[in-house]
Amino acid sequence: MTATDGKPSRLFYHGTRADLKPGDLLSAGFRSNYRDGPPLSWIYFSGTLDAAIWGAELARGDGRERIYVVEPTGDYVDDPNLTDKKFPGNPTLSYRSQDPLRIVGEVEQWEGHPPEQIRDMKQGIARLMAQGAEIID
């Protein structure tokens, strides 16, 4: 899913706590930011800043929350964890790829969600995991 010239037709974002710089690659094969388990075979990203903000806010770790502007280096598809299960039609513009994402910049200023909304989201994820739900394919 790329524009005809081989470059993405929009900006894409990835939220994390990792400290990266332009030119670095984000790739599949690492653990999820949200749950324990085996390494993921996909790298996730979004066409909306809000979805990336959630990614940064929910990411585990001690680093600063960061939003990177990313460029897919290969093919990507709609993220079925959201588009098939939660938001038909992909309004969150959520995607995944088995090819790396190249960091092209960082969003330096962004406004996060209210603390109570983050708490509620984390509690919801913990509840799903306690029930044995697979929230990430």
Score class of each variant (00 low, 15 high):
121 M>F: 03
123 Q>W: 00
120 D>A: 15
75 D>V: 05
14 H>R: 14
135 I>E: 02
2 T>D: 06
109 Q>H: 14
19 D>Y: 13
42 W>P: 01
76 Y>W: 02
80 P>T: 05
124 G>S: 05
99 D>W: 07
31 R>M: 06
63 G>F: 11
50 D>Y: 06
57 E>S: 14
82 L>I: 00
39 P>E: 04
125 I>H: 03
86 K>D: 07
60 R>F: 09
28 A>V: 02
93 L>A: 15
87 F>L: 15
96 R>S: 09
43 I>E: 01
97 S>F: 04
113 H>V: 01
57 E>W: 06
114 P>R: 14
64 R>Q: 13
15 G>R: 02
135 I>H: 01
123 Q>S: 01
127 R>N: 03
75 D>Y: 03
96 R>G: 07
24 D>P: 02
133 A>N: 07
93 L>E: 12
113 H>P: 01
51 A>F: 10
1 M>Y: 04
94 S>A: 15
75 D>T: 06
58 L>R: 03
46 S>E: 05
56 A>Y: 10
102 R>S: 04
76 Y>P: 01
59 A>V: 05
73 T>W: 07
38 P>T: 10
104 V>S: 00
11 L>R: 07
37 G>K: 11
26 L>C: 02
102 R>N: 02
7 K>S: 11
63 G>C: 12
23 G>K: 11
62 D>N: 12
129 M>C: 08
108 E>V: 10
1 M>A: 14
103 I>T: 09
128 L>H: 09
109 Q>C: 07
74 G>A: 06
98 Q>V: 13
104 V>Y: 00
62 D>M: 09
35 R>Q: 13
55 G>S: 11
130 A>V: 02
27 S>P: 00
121 M>W: 09
81 N>K: 06
10 R>D: 05
136 I>H: 03
65 E>M: 15
84 D>L: 15
65 E>S: 09
25 L>W: 12
26 L>I: 08
18 A>K: 14
49 L>M: 15
12 F>K: 12
2 T>E: 10
11 L>W: 01
129 M>P: 00
113 H>K: 04
53 I>F: 09
